[in-house]
Structures are given as C-alpha cells and as structure tokens.
Design a protein around this nucleic acid. Structure first.
Length: 685
DNA sequence: TCAATCCGTATC
DNA sequence: ATACGGATTGAC
C-alpha cells in the first residue's frame, strides 16, 4: 500500500504524525486546569518496570472530577488503560510532552491516600507491583452501587464498652482505656477458654469508636465474621459498622466498601478482603487467629492479612490487636522485640475456666468394646464422652481432614526427619531410594534420627478415615451430628449429642461441651509443614476452649504421646509458653519468622535468569532448586523448579527490593517465561 | 542518497 | 499492546 492510494482517507502529507494528530490537535485546543494541572497516575499494567506514577495534564473540563483517589482512563503507550489518580500537583519533573487524562471514570475517591501508601509498602515488602496490590485493595466498580443512596447514619457519640469482660485479663482494662483516649497501644491478646472472642474484639472496636476514631478487624472466614458482626450489632447497633467479605456479590461488596470509603461508618470488619478497606481516622487494626492460613491471600503478591494490618498500624499510627486462643510464632516475635505487649488471663482465672486436659496413648479397648475399637477411641476418651452424655452435655469430636501430604518420620520415635544440611523436611522419591530434602535437594543417605539415633524411616500415616456412623455405634442412643466442609453447624444446644467436626468448623455449644475428643493427632503433627506443631496446637485449642470448665466436669482428651511438647502445651493450657519455645526452635533452625524467606517458582532457565539479574543481599542462602510437583502438568510442559532464598530478618527489605528489581529487568526485556516470586511463602514443604 | 523496513525500547 | 527512533537494507 502506498500513501498515494486514492482509497485511503489520509490526506495528511505527514502520515507518520497521523496517529498523534488527534492528541496533537487536542493539545492546542484543550486547556489544562488552572490550579494543580498535573495528575500523578498509577496505571493498571502488570509490568514490573512500569510500576511507578506517570504524569498527565488535567483538562480544565475535568478539573472538578479529577480528585485524588479517583479512577481515571489514560492513553498509555499505544492503549487506553485504567488507573488511579494518586495526587494533583503544580509541576511535573517529566521533560517530555505530557498527555491529557482521557477521562475520569468516576469522581468517587476510592483510593484513600492512606491506602495508597499502604499498598505501595505492601507491594515493596512482597516484591510485587502496586497494580497487583490495588486489584486486591479496591473492589471492582459497580455503577448502580455508586448511585445508590447511603444507608442512614446514626447520630450521636458511641458510648465506651463495658470493660467487665476483660476482668480476667489484668492488662485488658488499660488497653481499652488507651483506645478510648486516642492512643495507639499494640497487644497480643490470648483469649482464655470459655471466653467469647467475638465479644472481646467487639469491645475493642467499640472503644476506639467511642474515642472518635475508626477500627478495622479481619477474621479468617464467613462464620467468624457473622459472630463478630452480631457482637458488634449488640454494642453499636446496625449502622455504625459494615462487614466486607469476598463472598458478597459485586454490588453488595462495592456498596459496603463505599460506605466505608465515604466515612459513613467508624468500624469495618471482614475477611481478608477487608484488610485494605478505607477507614476514616484509623485508630485500631485487629486480627483474629492470625495463625489461620486463610489470612494469606492467594493472588499475587500473596500478602498476609497480619503483615498488611501491622504495616497499616505502623504507617497510620494506629493501635494493633493480634487476638487468638493460640499464639503464632510471628505474634511471639512481636512480643520478643517489644513491639507489642501481651494481654493474658491471670493464672487463677485461667485455672477456673479451663477444662481438664488429659493425653492418652492410642491403646484401644479391643476386647470389651469392639465399637470403640472400630472408631479407634481409647478407653479414657470413651469414658469422658459417656460421662458427658450421662450429664446431658454435648460431646465434640475433632477429626483432621484427609489429604495431608505424606512425610517421612523416624520408624522408632516418629520424629520428623530433618535434612542434615539445611534442616528441611525429607521425602522419599516415588521411585524409591534415599530420602531427598524437599528444600535443597540434598540426598540424605545413611540418615540417623537426630532425636533417637534411629536409622529406619517410614511414611507417616495420613488422616485416617473416620465416620460419624462409627462413632454412633460407639455411643448407642446418642444423636450424632457432623460439622465440616459441606454443612457447618454454628451452635448446638445444651443436650446429650455427639458432634463430629473437622478443624475450623467446630460449633459453639450452649453451656459448653462436657467432653472434647481430639483424635488422629499424628495426621496433624506429621504434616509436611514446618508450622505443623503450631498449627496442631491452634486447632486443638480452637476445640478445647469450647469445653466447660474442669470444675463443671469439662474434659478434653487428646490422643497423643504426652511427652511431645505440643501435647504438654495443651495439657497445661499454655499457648504462650509454646509460642516462646516454637520461636526459639525456629531461630535455632533458621526458619521464618526468625529469618525471611522467598521462593522462586518457574522453569530452571527462567529462575537462573532472574537470579543473574538480581543483586541479592550478601549472605543470601540459596536452597535448591528442586523440582516441584505440578498438579496438572501438561506433557510438553517444561518441568517447574523451586528455589528458596533465605536471609536474616534485617535483610528482608533488601531481598524484596533485589527481587523486584530483577523482575523489572525481566519484564522490560519481555522475557515471557514467568517466575513466581513469593515472599514469606506459607507452604515451606 | 533516500525511503521502506526491521528491531529494540519506552510507555507521562 | 503500540508507537517511536535509530539502524539496516535495498533500489536508484
């Protein structure tokens, strides 16, 4: 085709300029806004090397709508892309020629300055891009929700909460007072058995609202959210808080997000979808059960709600509350560094409310009670359950879900195997042979158990199949209910019944359970996860706290070896002591959170290329790469590998910066072969 | 010597 | 993605 082709409607003598002609003309006729004519825009493109603001001119006609935090559309490179207007400024440092904003999608300021700053920090910490984080932070726009009228806003001040529920916790009342007074206390709160956590969290949120500030709380799942919602409604009524969850439809989700963004409610609660929610005059961030892995987002860059909220507290000068019946190693680290203070029940109150916990070996009543044997219930457990049923109290039976990964344990003492080189877990290849480290690939020939010196290894038993019918036969005449994946029960009445539940689905019993049985502990304890012990105690405690006090007959029976530290922690009801020990162990072994880790997943050449482009901090430990199992590997798919990087905590930011820079180099070069970068990967197999 | 085309790179 | 600039190539 030639330019002289008469069929082409291109009379322009300079065809090279034709594509620019429209904006060129616009430049001449469109006037920039008089005041603050430059808009700094975060464009929604996923490329790492474009992860910075770009400057545009605001046309005078868009002056009023182009407010900081609004959604805009701009010409970027060839295409029109979405973006957020970060700020309006007088001058641009850009030496080239500025383009104009194409349009303001909506004048609604959906990206508060506080949230933009938070999102930037989270992107930096996780070696991800701002655009990726903003996709998590701001829900998709829904025009109808934007037009809809706001719900009523109740007038008048919020009265401070009744501190009575905090009486067992010596530091509790002072914490609430500090929240009312506008201070920023930071605490790790360990709730005691029998206490209702939702009431305590609602107290704290009410306190901060009473002081004229906003509060934000994140819980693991929808059921927890309902409980917190109910506790808040009792204290604040129905219109001073919103609950945000990803499971809401797009319209409801955006509507509630807008209520928060418009400053109509002082309190926002939600699942992790709410961790970036805008809260006016943020005074408190709270998280319930931070050890639950539902708090880790599954979209890049995979931020964890605890880390996001702590960053937020730091940046906003807000109070922080990490609450749980258990205590994570990360929470313990905050106490160890003095960043947060503990709020725990005094020993007397704890003794009065805790059930009696006994550990029992897995010897069964074989001859006398075949039904109990079929259900693999030890005699102690059967007696505790029958006593409870006789007292017309419900019995809770916690059984692990099936499907945990098999790991290799010592045949003699059942201790988990540890790689002699990097202390990672060992696995036996499907083809057989020597065990191989799942982290660094080291082949551990001639393995000796570090606990007992044993040389024989065995694959650990995976969550045994157990059915409600089996338990039903063991307790003839009792009603047997189940609560789990399909069909979660919320509450059960105070009457004789057996409730079989998987971890996380335990119903609350009116008046408490007479007995709680924790079965198949090996399936939990031998999980191929360095957090297996912490996770086990977290799940056991979640069930055990639902039992009646020991003085009222409450019994917890855990089928496990009483000499194992995690079992002792349960028997003594001592999550704090366990967390201290766990953190010490992780320091000794070089595990998170004592160190910072990052995983790189991709093909071997892509990983090598990323590493070559990265200037890693001095002393970075490289573990691997090792092949990683892909769930559905196509036949022509190149094998994926995983490399772990380990640095001291202080080098964490430097590691993230280095990985981000290396990703930027790769994305600028258009290296298609992707490498997934995950900082603090949850699964360290 | 000029213009059409290719390739690498920046994208306000 | 796509538009631009500089390098490259090929025809006169």
């Amino acid at each position: 085709m030639s330019a002289e082709d008469p069929t082409l409607p291109l009379p322009d003598p300079a065809p090279r300029r034709a594509p620019r002609g429209r904006s060129r003309r616009a430049t001449r006729t469109v006037e920039p806004a008089q005041r603050l004519p430059v808009a700094r825009v975060a464009v929604d493109v996923g490329l790492a090397h474009l992860d910075r603001p770009f400057d545009y001119l605001v046309p005078a006609r868009l002056d009023a709508e182009a407010v900081p935090g609004c959604r805009v559309r701009v010409r970027f490179g060839g295409a029109l892309v979405d973006g957020y207007l970060l700020e309006r400024v007088e001058h641009s440092d850009f030496t080239g020629r500025l383009g104009f904003l194409d349009r303001v999608t909506s004048a609604e300021p959906v990206l508060a300055a506080e949230v933009a700053e938070l999102a930037r920090a989270v992107a930096d910490r996780y070696a991800g891009s701002l655009a990726d984080v903003l996709r998590l932070a701001v829900p998709p726009r829904h025009a109808r929700a934007e037009r809809a009228a706001d719900d009523p806003v109740p007038a008048g001040p919020v009265p401070p909460p009744d501190p009575d529920g905090w009486r067992p916790y010596p530091a509790g009342a002072a914490y609430l007072r500090a929240l009312v007074d506008g201070r920023a206390p930071r605490a790790v709160f360990t709730a005691m058995p029998g206490d209702d956590w939702a009431d305590r969290l609602a107290d704290a949120l009410t306190a901060v609202a009473a002081g004229g500030r906003g509060g934000l709380a994140v819980v693991p799942d929808a059921r927890d959210l309902d409980r917190l919602d109910a506790a808040l409604t009792v204290r604040l009524g129905a219109h001073r808080h919103v609950a945000i969850a990803a499971s809401l439809g797009p319209e409801q989700r955006y509507r509630r997000f807008l209520r928060a963004a418009r400053g109509r409610v002082p309190v926002v609660i939600g699942t992790r979808a709410a961790m970036f929610a805008p809260v006016p005059r943020l005074g408190l961030v709270a998280i319930w059960d931070d050890g639950d892995d539902l708090h880790a987002d599954d979209h890049a860059p995979y931020p964890h709600a605890r880390e996001v909220l702590l960053t937020r507290a730091q940046q906003a000068g807000a109070a922080a509350l990490l609450a749980g019946y258990a205590r994570s190693a990360e929470a313990q680290l905050l106490l160890a560094t003095g960043w947060a203070k503990p709020i725990v029940a005094d020993r007397a109150a704890l003794r009065a409310s805790a059930p009696r916990v006994v550990a029992t070996g897995d010897e069964y009543q074989l001859a006398r009670d075949p039904a109990a044997a079929a259900a693999r219930l030890p005699g102690v457990a059967v007696r505790a359950a029958r006593d409870a049923l006789a007292a017309d109290a419900p019995v809770l039976v916690q059984v692990p879900r099936r499907g945990y990964l098999p790991v290799v344990v010592c045949q003699r003492c059942r201790a988990r195997t540890r790689c002699p080189r990097c202390a990672g877990p060992l696995a036996v290849p499907a083809a057989g042979g020597f065990p191989v480290c799942r982290w660094c690939g080291h082949t551990a020939g001639g393995y000796r158990c570090p606990e007992c010196g044993g040389r024989e290894l065995r694959a650990a038993v995976i969550g045994a199949r157990r059915t409600a019918e089996e338990l039903g036969r063991a307790f003839p005449g009792a009603v047997v209910r189940t609560s789990g994946r399909d069909g979660v029960l919320d509450r059960v009445p105070a009457e004789a019944s057996v409730v079989v539940s998987t971890p996380g689905a335990e119903p609350v019993a009116d008046g408490g359970y007479g007995a709680v049985l924790l079965l198949d502990s090996w399936a939990l304890l031998t999980r191929a996860d360095l957090r297996a012990a912490e996770e086990t105690l977290r799940r056991w405690l979640a069930a055990a706290v639902l039992a009646r006090p020991g003085a009222a007959g409450g019994r917890v029976v855990v089928v496990a070896d009483a000499s194992v530290p995690v079992v002792q922690a349960l028997v003594r009801f001592d999550p704090g002591g366990f967390a201290e020990r766990e953190l010490a162990d992780r320091r000794a072994l070089g595990f998170p959170p004592a160190v910072r880790m990052a995983s790189l997943t991709g093909t071997a050449p892509a990983i090598a290329e990323l590493l070559a482009a990265a200037t890693l901090p001095d002393g970075t430990d490289e573990l691997g790469p090792v092949p990683v199992a892909t769930p559905r590997a196509a036949p022509d798919d190149p094998e994926r590998q995983r490399l772990l990087l380990r640095v001291p905590r202080a080098q964490g930011p430097a590691l993230a910066t280095a990985l981000r820079a290396a990703t930027a180099v790769r994305s600028a070069r258009k290296d298609a072969d992707p490498v997934r970068v995950q900082v603090d990967p949850l699964e360290l197999l």
